[in-house]
Design a protein around this nucleic acid. Structure first.
Length: 721
DNA sequence: CGAAAGGCTCTTTTT
DNA sequence: GAGCCTTTCG
C-alpha cells in the first residue's frame, strides 16, 4: 500500500497524498507527471477506498488516456476499469449521446471534423447572402471556434460584435448552427459547449454527475479553453475534489483557444487550493536542461519553475548549420547511422522534430534515399484521405440520413450522372418544401408526390438510383455486422472499381482496406451499435494515437505532436527566423512567446543528445529563400554548445577522419563497378563512392529498385565477388 | 455530365 | 508544391 509511495520524491508524494480539496500541480517537463497522476489514482482507490466509478480523469489525447490506463492497471489492477478516463471530446460525446435528448440533441448525431465544418460553413456563408470567396471560410471558422470555446452562442456574439467582420461572423455563426442542427451533427467545439449547456439547463443531470464524480482530475490543464474549464468546474462543484496538472511553459495550443488564464485563475477560483511544484527532472542531462531553461527564461508571461536534475552533465548540445534542407536531412541520417553503428543509440531512440508538416517531405526523401527506417507520425493524415472520408460518409449517411455534408460528398462519388445543376435544383427545392435533402431525394425517387420542377428525366433517374442504393444500405444496415455492411457499401456503390482505376488507385484501395481492418474491431457488436462506435472512434482519433513504438525506426514528428513524448536523441530542425519562430507570430508578442514555448517543448523531449539544426537556404512554398538563424539559438549559452561534431566532447577538439577513436566502422574501398548486396534492395553495382566525414557515401545501381545513395556505415553492404 | 487542364490560393500547430 | 476551384472541351 505504501510501497508505491516510497518510490516518489517528497513533492510527488505530496501531490499523491493531497486527495481532499482543490489541488494545482505545476509539473515541469520530465518531472514524472504521468507517474504522479497514476499513483494518485491508485492511492485514491487502494488507500482512500474511493471506488474507481467515482473518479473522472480527463486527458488531451487518446494516447495519454491509454497510457494512463496502462499505468493504472499496473498499479491498481482491473479495478480501475470502472473509472472514467478519456479526452474531453470523447467524454462529452458519450455524455451527450446518453443525456443530450433533454436539450434537443438526437443521440444519433454525427461529429463533424474540420473538413466537414468548412463545407458546411461555405453553405452557411452563401445562405446569408455573402460570397464564400470573399470571406474566407477558414477565418470565419476560427472565429466561430473561438466563440464556442468561450461559451458564446450566436446571439451573444452578435451583441458583442464590434467590427463589420464580427457582424458577418455572427450571422454566419447562426446559420451554421442551424445547418448543423438540420444535419443532426455537432462539431468538435459543440461537444464541449453543448455539454455545458446541458448542465446549465438540466440541473438534475448535472447533479447526477456531480454526485458520481467525487474526484476530478485534469491533465495538461494549460491547454484547456474556457469552456473546458467551465465544464470541469461544474462537475467538481459537488465535492470540490479537483486536481489539475499543468505547466504554463508547455502551453502551445492558444490558437485552439487554450487559455493560460485557466491556470492563473485556478487559485482565484479556489482560494484554498494547495499548490505542488514538481521541479526535479528525471529525463534530461544537465546540459539539456540548462539549455531549455535558458530558452524559456526569455518569456515574460510565466510562472517560473526551478527545474533541476541529478542526471549527468551529458554531451554538449550540437548546433549544426547546413547549407540546405537536403543537407540538413543528410546530416541527420549520417548522424543517426553513426550513433546506431557505435551502439550509442538505436533508431527508435531518435526523433526528428519540425515546426510544420511540410518540412517532413525533404526529410522523408533523404531517409528513403539512404534506406533508413523512419516513422512519420502524421503524413497525409489517414482519416483525412479522400477515399477514407468517402467510405465514412457512406456509413454516416446510413446511420443518419440528415447528414447533409456526407450526402453531398457521396451523392456523385463514384460518378453516377448527378451534376452541379441537378444538385442545385434538388437542394433549392428541398429548401422550398422545407424538407431535408435526403427526404427530397426520396420524394424524387418514389412514384407519387410532388416533384422538383426543373429536374429533367435523366437527372431524376440518376437521383432515384442513388436513393435506392442508400435505402437498400439502410435496410441491410440493421441486420449486418459492420464489416459485412462495409463490404456491401463498397460492392453496391461500385467504389472499388472507381478508386482502383483512378490516380494512385492501388494505394488508395489499400487505405480503404486499412479502414476495413479498423471496422473489423467493431463487428462483434450489434449492427447499428457497431456502426455508431466505429464512427465515434474515427471522428475522435488522432494520428499521434496510432504511434507505434515497437518498430525500430526514427520518428519524424511535429513539435506540437511531440509534447508528452521523450527520446534519447532529438534533432530539432529548421531553427530559422520565419519557421521557428513561425513568421505568423512576428507581429504578436504573445504568439512569439508561444513559439518559444514550442521550442522549449522540443528541447525538453531530449534525454541524452540534442541537435539544433538550421539551414542557410530552404525552399518554402515552391520558391527558395535565404534564412536567418532563429533567435532561439541565441538563447543557448555558448558553454553548452559544440559547433563541430558532437563527439568532440569536453575537450572541444574537432575529430578528423584519421582519428581512429572516432572511426566506428571499417570502410573498405569500394570502387565503381564493384558488385554489392544490400539486405533490402538486393544486388547492385557501385556507380559512385565518396568519403564523407568518418563514413562514406556509396551510390549503387540496384537491379530491382534503381539507383540509391547509401551511407556505408548504415547500409551494411556486402561485397559480392 | 464528366474528364482534363489550367489557375488560384494558401501552407502552423489538432481534439 | 498541392489541393481546390473554374473553365473548357468532348
Amino acid at each position: 500500500m505504501t510501497d508505491f509511495l516510497a518510490s516518489l520524491n517528497p513533492a510527488q508524494r505530496q501531490a499523491v497524498e493531497q486527495t481532499d480539496g482543490p489541488l494545482l500541480i505545476l509539473a515541469g517537463p520530465g518531472s514524472g507527471k504521468t507517474r504522479v497522476i497514476a499513483h494518485r489514482v491508485a492511492h485514491l482507490i487502494s488507500t482512500c477506498r474511493v471506488s474507481p466509478y467515482n473518479i473522472l480523469a480527463v486527458t488531451f489525447t487518446n494516447k495519454a488516456a491509454r497510457v494512463m490506463k496502462e499505468r493504472l492497471s499496473h498499479l491498481a489492477g482491473s479495478s480501475a476499469d470502472d473509472m472514467t478516463i478519456g479526452t474531453f471530446h470523447a467524454i462529452c460525446a458519450r455524455l451527450l449521446r446518453r443525456e443530450g435528448r433533454t436539450i434537443g440533441i438526437d443521440p444519433g448525431f454525427v461529429i463533424y471534423d474540420e473538413d466537414d465544418k468548412l463545407s458546411l460553413l461555405k453553405r452557411a456563408i452563401e445562405a446569408v447572402g455573402l460570397d464564400s470567396k470573399q470571406y474566407s471560410a477558414r477565418a470565419i471558422a476560427s472565429a466561430i471556434s473561438a466563440a464556442k470555446s468561450s461559451l458564446l452562442p450566436p446571439q451573444d456574439y452578435l451583441e458583442r460584435g464590434q467590427s463589420y467582420f464580427d457582424e458577418v461572423v455572427g450571422r454566419v455563426y447562426g446559420g451554421y448552427q442551424q445547418l448543423l442542427l438540420e444535419s443532426n451533427a455537432l462539431d468538435f467545439d459543440d461537444l464541449l459547449l453543448r455539454t455545458v449547456q446541458l448542465f446549465r439547463q438540466c440541473p438534475e443531470v448535472l447533479a447526477k454527475y456531480q454526485k458520481r464524480y467525487r474526484h476530478v482530475m485534469v491533465d495538461e490543464f494549460q491547454d484547456t479553453n474556457l469552456t473546458q474549464y467551465e465544464l470541469v468546474k461544474m462537475l467538481a462543484a459537488g465535492h470540490r475534489n479537483i486536481c489539475v496538472v499543468g505547466d504554463p511553459d508547455q502551453s502551445i495550443y492558444s490558437w485552439r483557444s487554450a487559455d493560460l488564464r485557466n491556470i492563473l485563475n485556478f487559485e482565484k477560483d479556489y482560494p484554498d487550493a494547495k499548490v505542488v511544484f514538481l521541479e526535479q527532472n528525471y529525463r534530461s542531462t544537465k546540459k539539456i536542461l540548462e539549455a531549455a531553461a535558458a530558452v524559456i527564461s526569455a518569456n515574460r508571461q510565466r510562472k517560473p519553475l526551478n527545474l533541476w536534475t541529478d542526471n549527468d552533465a551529458g554531451e554538449p548540445i550540437s548546433v549544426v548549420e547546413t547549407y540546405s534542407q537536403q543537407e540538413e536531412a543528410q546530416f541527420i541520417v549520417s548522424e543517426v547511422a553513426r550513433l546506431a553503428a557505435s551502439g550509442k543509440a538505436a533508431l527508435g531512440d531518435c526523433a526528428v522534430m519540425y515546426r510544420t508538416n511540410a518540412q517532413s517531405r525533404a526529410l522523408e526523401e533523404v531517409f528513403v534515399q539512404y534506406g533508413m527506417n523512419y516513422r512519420l507520425v502524421a503524413g497525409t493524415r489517414f482519416y483525412e484521405r479522400r477515399e477514407v472520408k468517402d467510405i465514412i460518409a457512406y456509413l454516416r449517411l446510413i446511420l443518419n440520413s440528415a447528414d447533409s455534408v456526407s450526402l453531398m460528398r457521396v451523392i456523385n462519388v463514384p460518378p453516377r450522372g448527378i451534376g452541379q445543376r441537378s444538385l442545385g435544383n434538388l437542394s433549392a427545392w428541398a429548401g422550398q418544401e422545407g424538407t431535408s435533402l435526403y427526404q427530397a431525394l426520396e420524394l424524387v425517387a418514389v412514384l407519387e408526390g410532388p416533384k422538383p420542377p426543373l429536374l429533367n428525366l435523366r437527372a431524376s433517374k440518376a437521383l432515384g438510383v442513388f436513393y435506392s442504393l442508400m435505402a437498400g444500405l439502410v435496410a441491410r444496415g440493421r441486420e449486418l455486422n459492420l464489416v459485412e455492411l462495409f463490404d456491401l457499401v463498397i460492392a453496391k456503390s461500385g467504389y472499388q472499381e472507381y478508386i482502383s482505376s483512378g490516380q494512385d488507385g492501388e494505394e488508395r484501395w489499400e487505405n480503404v482496406l486499412e479502414l476495413r481492418t479498423v471496422a473489423q474491431q467493431y463487428s462483434d457488436l450489434e449492427p447499428l451499435d457497431g456502426l455508431t462506435a466505429f464512427l465515434e472512434r474515427v471522428a475522435l482519433v488522432s494520428d499521434v494515437d496510432s504511434y507505434d513504438e515497437s518498430i525500430e525506426a526514427v520518428t519524424l514528428i511535429t513539435l506540437h505532436q511531440a509534447k508528452g513524448l521523450e527520446f534519447a536523441v532529438v534533432f530539432i530542425t529548421g531553427l530559422e527566423e520565419g519557421l521557428l519562430p513561425h513568421y505568423r507570430s512576428f507581429d504578436d508578442p504573445a504568439q512569439m512567446e508561444e513559439e518559444r514555448r514550442l521550442c522549449y517543448v522540443g528541447v525538453t523531449r531530449a534525454k541524452e543528445r540534442l541537435y539544433l539544426i538550421r539551414a542557410f537556404r530552404r525552399s518554402l512554398m515552391g520558391g527558395v529563400s535565404a534564412c536567418e538563424p532563429s533567435r532561439f539559438l541565441e538563447s543557448i549559452p555558448q558553454h553548452l554548445v559544440s559547433r563541430g561534431q558532437p563527439e568532440a566532447g569536453e575537450a572541444g577538439r574537432l575529430p578528423s577522419r584519421d582519428d581512429d577513436s572516432l572511426s566506428v566502422v571499417d570502410i573498405p574501398e569500394l570502387k565503381a563497378g564493384d558488385r554489392v548486396r544490400h539486405s533490402q534492395f538486393g544486388e547492385g553495382v557501385v556507380v559512385g563512392y565518396q568519403p564523407v566525414r568518418d563514413d562514406a557515401e556509396v551510390v549503387v545501381d540496384f537491379r530491382w529498385t534503381g539507383v540509391k545513395k547509401l551511407l556505408f556505415s548504415f547500409a551494411r553492404l556486402e561485397k559480392v565477388e
